[in-house]
């Protein structure tokens, strides 16, 4: 594993990740996630849907630099406008940190084509620029898809941090499997990349925006 994967997946990386809960805030507000068991189910589901989609596009973006095409294809696989916005907000934030850490004409070309790029595409671009592989990018994206909501659960529900951490580590093999599948399709043309989806998460993301914009809302997504 390349160190870029460690840096990008570290919660201390200043890429704006801490303001996103990946739908966990809305799920918690509705009582859908209330304890360790329900959190484990949420994380497993998110990993295999939103996480796998992110891993696929992160892995593809390491070598494929057709930024506009990748952007459009990921848009098409992200039906919720709120999730697209959350992805672009994190992508933009990661660009800000990435430009200082790994300045590169490749990154410049990404920002020129898509000023607010999707998070997964930025993860792949930065991984490639730093010398990492599609496997590094996929693993990073897959891990971030569960580590962010897990951290949000600790903050929102006051769950035992050791138990939450154990839930994340229990997903270790599943995270690796998601990353492996992403790597296996990383060479496909962007239009042919798979599009795993989670209508439930899409609806939660939309509800989060609609119901909480005027009320207490701690996370941007």
């Amino acid at each position: 594993m390349h160190t870029v994967a460690l840096v990008l997946s570290d919660s201390r990386f200043p890429g704006g990740g801490h303001v996103h809960s990946g739908g966990l805030e809305e799920a918690a507000a509705r009582g859908l996630v209330s304890d360790i068991r329900s959190l484990g189910l949420f994380l497993a589901g998110r990993l295999r849907t939103a996480g796998e989609l992110a891993a696929i596009f992160a892995a593809a973006s390491v070598k494929c630099h057709e930024w506009s095409t990748l952007d459009e294809e990921l848009d098409a696989r992200t039906p919720s406008p709120a999730q697209r916005e959350a992805s672009r907000a994190q992508g933009r934030a990661t660009v800000r940190a990435g430009r200082r850490a790994w300045p590169s004409p490749v990154l410049d070309s990404l920002v020129q084509a898509t000023p607010r790029p999707h998070h997964a595409i930025v993860l792949g671009a930065l991984t490639g620029i730093a010398g990492g592989s599609s496997a590094d990018a996929a693993l990073t994206a897959a891990y971030l898809s569960v580590s962010g909501p897990a951290s949000a659960a600790i903050r929102l529900l006051g769950l035992d941090p050791f138990a939450v951490n154990a839930q994340v580590t229990r997903l270790g093999e599943a995270i690796q499997a998601v990353a492996d599948r992403a790597v296996s399709v990383a060479g496909l043309p962007p239009a042919d990349l798979p599009g795993p989806g989670a209508p439930g998460l899409d609806l939660l993301a939309e509800a989060h925006v609609r119901h909480h914009k005027e009320e207490v809302r701690l996370f941007a997504s």
């Binding site: 801490h18 303001v19 809960s21 949000a152 903050r155 929102l156 701690l218 996370f219 941007a220």
Partner: peptide, 10 residues
């Protein structure tokens, strides 16, 4: 801005 329960982090 939203702060994800962490004003100091933001």
């Amino acid at each position: 801005v939203q702060t994800g329960c962490c004003p100091h982090t933001a």
